[in-house]
Design a protein around this nucleic acid. Structure first.
Lengths: 138, 138
DNA sequence: GTGTTTGCAAAGTGTTTGCAATTTA
DNA sequence: TAAATTGCAAACACTTTGCAAACAC
């Protein structure tokens, strides 16, 4: 019986990019990656960390979110001009955004192909395509 | 020969929703709607206004952008977590976003149909679909 | 031990607000 | 003249930064 370590790849990646295994980073990695895909804001992660008795400053939350994003462990999603969202799913996919609650949800199986799009402007290449489907409660 | 008043619909709309024709609003409407489609941030519009010797405070810029947005004359575009963009083209369309310069450009002829998308989550309706193609200079 | 990381408080950025003075209708 | 609008400065929310103390290796 294999022991599942849902976020062992995170530890490997941290080492690979030279991020030390500090108490804070390990605890945040656990919260973020242990339980499937998540969408978090800095504030939410901070609140959650404190609720789990993890002592971390907000500054460290921001540092960690950016370090993980640079390491390719997180992806930043822009849906709201006033807050940054981070997604533990770094594969190419899109989102439903619940305008009232500010929640995000992955859209399964929506793939935008290069051929679906007009060519990018002269001298540019497509870095990424983001589709946000904004939904409202009826 | 017809006299073209590219933004006469704006004046009508302002009246329709009860926005008085103040010096500031008229001047900003002119800047925004006189020369085809535009994408502006508050700061850019403010700078442009001052360059054209229009005295407007930043507070009024924000007020006006929101009032015009509520009136359906502008559309807010979310592409950057740190700034709000407003588009004079309120019809359903999508954008190229130049990550280095922060510029926006309409994508002509990209239409996302309801049938292209998975159904929205139970109890919600699609308010709007935003596609942002992030491009980088080669 | 050395270089990295943390946490705090201060600073920064874009945006909003309260309110007196001004302007529009 | 009554109600709406403006501009200022202060307040705000979120994020970043500088730096001394704590920590990882």
């Amino acid at each position: 019986m294999e022991i599942v370590r849902p976020y062992s790849h995170v530890l490997k990646k941290m080492e690979a990019v030279g991020l030390r295994s500090t108490r804070q980073r390990l605890a945040l990695a656990k919260v973020l990656f242990e339980n499937g895909n998540r969408h978090v804001t800095a504030e939410k992660l901070h609140a959650e960390a404190r609720a789990s008795h993890i002592r971390v400053s907000l500054a460290t939350i921001y540092n960690t979110l950016h370090q993980f994003t640079n390491a390719g462990l997180l992806r930043e999603i822009v849906v709201d001009a006033s807050r940054s969202y981070f997604d533990t799913n770094t594969s190419s996919h899109h989102h439903f955004f619940f305008e009232e609650t500010g929640e995000l949800e992955d859209i399964p199986g929506l793939v935008v192909k290069q051929s679906d799009l007009p060519p990018p402007p002269q001298g540019t290449t497509v870095e990424r395509v983001d589709v946000v489907v904004r939904v409202k409660e009826v």
